[in-house]
Design a protein around this nucleic acid. Sequence first.
DNA 1: CGACAACACCTAGAAGTTAGAGGCATGTCA
DNA 2: TGACATGCCTCTAACTTCTAGGTGTTGTCG
Lengths: 111, 111
Amino acid sequence: MPRDLFIDGVPELLMLRLLARKEMYGYELVSEISKRSNNVFTFGEGCIYPILHRLVRQKELSVRKDTVSGRSRRYYKLTKLGTKRLTTLETSWSNVSRGVESFGKELGHAT
Amino acid sequence: MPRDLFIDGVPELLMLRLLARKEMYGYELVSEISKRSNNVFTFGEGCIYPILHRLVRQKELSVRKDTVSGRSRRYYKLTKLGTKRLTTLETSWSNVSRGVESFGKELGHAT
DNA sequence: CGACAACACCTAGAAGTTAGAGGCATGTCA
DNA sequence: TGACATGCCTCTAACTTCTAGGTGTTGTCG
């Protein structure tokens, strides 16, 4: 089965949006994204974790280890760089989104 | 340099939208997309041609050779399969687009 | 004539992202 | 004890776009 189109970059954007509000752990992000999007976006853990690791590597997220009821968790939080990254992604998304929409409109209104 | 985000599938979508109106040739598509999008999207030939070839391979486009003022051109046109493909892409784009927007609104990220 | 831009097509390979499958370990509850 | 949900992680495959090149023709300008 071919991968879903137009998804490129969306997981990262949604993750950063959530993390901009409060720190969260990986598993939590997975279920929160599904829930908040009404199952429109159902990214698995194999999708979320690599992105998390990359963002940490790029110093856009910071990690805090904690243990809750015997289970170790890694809480991720935005750094200043991460905030900039989010802004960049929002701008980028906005450009592409409006670009595609207006492209469609131009074609629809032409006679 | 990292690849542009959120672009995945967009070239194909725009190409199909244009080809749904009239047959066009590769070089024409390249410049038309740049022009129509006010240079928001500037896909090079190396991006357009492989997609064209794949769509023909999948029988979603048909080709017609022609020679205009001494220059040979390959005109591409949508087949019935191609029309279905366009519908699929439009739906897919719509889902992702609305998903991201509503996800943003819930969080208070309205622009 | 000779050089050069514009036109028109094409390929190969790299880069980057998501998806799937699976492996661990812990705590709870019947 | 066994079954199950929670929570973390890795590896590999698959997919798409992008860069950088290559080929050949036409028209133009000095």
